[in-house]
């Protein structure tokens, strides 16, 4: 039943909507639960990557340990770190989360590290959804023949790298906007406008032939 995009046997399509009411009931923090209830439109379990081959039915698939890929549609942007943290607590399994909101995309992942440990988490900020910057969950050349654990480690590393790139881009964008704002503030200042008006009047008097 494998329907992997890259024909990797380990990837199975699930396409299963998650019961949000039941899921969010398990959030301890009430404020957090309210946020999730208000801002999350739907959560879908899209794919499940498992090491076992030849899985026959969905029942067998969902029971099999592996790497789950979820897609979360948001009404408004929430911090991807918070989302990943809470979903990691709720789902308690190796996972890759794809958050979609206002035409932008963010990704997070959680790598559990045994009982008693918190595991590793990483998530990127939201960025415009385009093919050039799409983070591929699977890369046939790299992932073919690898175990799920190895694939997950590779995804984790890719996300960390991408997180850094996006952070730099956002910071630079902010810097450009700030400098543009500063320029505007000077441009529209009383002193500057007065100077321009004076110069324009002077030019007008020069161009006028009496």
């Amino acid at each position: 039943m494998s329907e992997g995009r890259y024909n990797i046997q380990k990837q199975y399509k699930v396409d299963k909507g998650m019961p949000l009411d039941a899921l969010f009931q398990r959030i301890d923090n009430l404020k957090c639960r309210r946020i999730f209830e208000a801002e999350i439109e739907c959560v879908e379990w899209s794919y499940h990557l498992v090491d076992k081959e030849g899985i026959k039915d969905m029942k067998e698939l969902v029971r099999e340990p592996g790497l789950s890929i979820f897609e979360v549609n948001l009404k408004r942007k929430i911090s991807p770190d918070l989302l990943t943290e809470v979903f990691a607590g709720l789902l308690q399994r190796p996972m890759v989360m794809v958050y979609l909101c206002e035409g932008e995309l963010s990704m997070g992942t959680y790598v559990p590290s045994g009982k008693g440990n918190t595991g590793k988490m990483c998530s990127t900020d939201f960025y415009p959804y385009d093919a050039d910057r799409m983070i591929e969950v699977l890369d046939y050349d790299i992932d073919c023949g690898k175990t799920i654990e190895q694939i997950h480690k590779r995804i984790f590393a890719t996300l960390r790298q991408q997180k850094r790139v996006i952070m730099i881009e956002k910071a630079f964008e902010r810097l450009s906007k700030d400098s543009a704002k500063e320029t505007f503030a000077y441009e529209f200042s009383y002193e500057n406008l007065e100077r321009i008006r004076r110069d324009a009047d002077f030019v007008q008097s020069q161009l006028r032939v009496v």
Binding site: I196, D199, A200, F202, V203, Q204, Q206, L207, R208
Partner: peptide
């Protein structure tokens, strides 16, 4: 044009 010439002092 003289009424709407702005920002061209040095050029003029």
């Amino acid at each position: 044009l003289e009424y709407i010439t702005v920002g061209r002092k040095s050029e003029i």
